[in-house]
């Protein structure tokens, strides 16, 4: 075992990259849940985004187009969920599970011709001389644009939810859909938009895995990241900045266990690989005692009949 092969600067830089898929998906899901909808289909939308982004990036040669396609793919799949839960008033838990099962199958089907191909690489964002600063340069200024987009997204979601009228309406719909409906807000329309936003974010998160993290396409490659993102929203108490913190914590754990595997620690690979999931459970236990921050109408079906 040789722990000195783990370079702390590279580790921090890599954990930011490892955190980005979780961050994107969890930020999207946060908006969905603040609107009062529990979409358990994050994993399905991520994996569909992963293959949509991968396929389009390979076909067009442009990773950016790939990411846009991934966002579209995730949003389109999430429309199915919106249809089930908002129009046909189906149970949200069951519909979310259906979305995940369907997404896993559909992505495997779409991805058949793409196994073993290398996607085009996305160039790092050019910060000029900033990237050459020791320590800070490699950590902060040498990443791909999507990573920065993720950070920007968190800031935007935070600002919109906290300071704008649209954010207030969204939160009102999530806290008490009957009251919001009585005030004349279009509950179903607002929720559908929120669900689509969540789908687009999850899709991009998936594409980040297939285009930048791995980069390759394999069936079921998201391997539970979508579920970790869901857990993250719970223990972030539905607050955007805490999602960021949580995502980096998980990125750190994921990256550290990968580095430990590489360094040949005496712990078997399988036990290192299960650590992110075990730690998710532990953090859930520690932080989920307080549910007071949960949106009041979370997971409840809305029907304007009374």
């Amino acid at each position: 075992m040789d722990l000195s092969v783990i370079n702390p600067i590279l580790l921090i830089a890599a954990l930011m990259s490892a955190a980005t898929p979780i961050l994107l998906a969890a930020t999207g899901e946060l908006v969905v849940e603040r609107a009062g909808v529990l979409n358990l289909g994050v994993e399905g939308m991520m994996i569909l985004g992963a293959i949509c982004g991968f396929a389009i990036a390979v076909e067009t040669g442009s990773p950016l187009t790939g990411f846009i396609a991934a966002a579209l793919g995730g949003a389109v799949l999430s429309l199915l969920f919106a249809f089930l839960t908002q129009i046909t008033l189906a149970n949200q838990v069951a519909s979310g599970l259906a979305l995940t099962l369907f997404g896993l199958g559909l992505s495997a089907l779409l991805g058949q011709g793409y196994v073993g191909i290398k996607p085009p690489r996305m160039a790092d964002f050019n910060f000029g001389p900033l990237a050459d600063i020791p320590v800070i340069g490699p950590i902060l200024f040498s990443h791909d644009p999507i990573l920065y987009f993720g950070l920007l997204l968190v800031a935007m979601v935070w600002a919109v939810l906290k300071f704008t009228r649209a954010g207030l309406v969204l939160r009102a719909v999530g806290e008490n859909h009957d009251a919001a409906h009585a005030l004349g807000y279009k509950v179903v329309r607002i929720r559908t938009l929120a669900i689509m936003f969540g789908g687009a974010c999850a899709g991009m998160g998936g594409a980040y895995i297939s285009l930048i993290r791995v980069p390759q396409w394999t069936e079921g490659m998201t391997a539970g990241v979508g579920w970790i993102a869901l857990a993250l929203v719970v223990f972030a108490s539905w607050k955007p900045w805490r999602v960021l913190l949580g995502a980096y914590l998980f990125g750190g754990i994921t990256q550290l266990q990968l580095n430990l595997q590489g360094a040949g620690v005496a712990i078997p690979v399988e036990y290192l690989a299960m650590s992110p999931y075990v730690i998710t459970i532990i953090v859930l236990v520690v932080l989920s005692a307080d549910k007071s921050a949960a949106p009041g109408s979370l997971g409840r079906t809305f029907h304007a009949s009374h």
């Binding site: 199958g105 559909l106 495997a108």
Partner: peptide, 8 residues
């Protein structure tokens, strides 16, 4: 995978 989609 088509069967999986079918089941979904």
């Amino acid at each position: 995978a088509a069967i999986q989609v079918f089941q979904g």
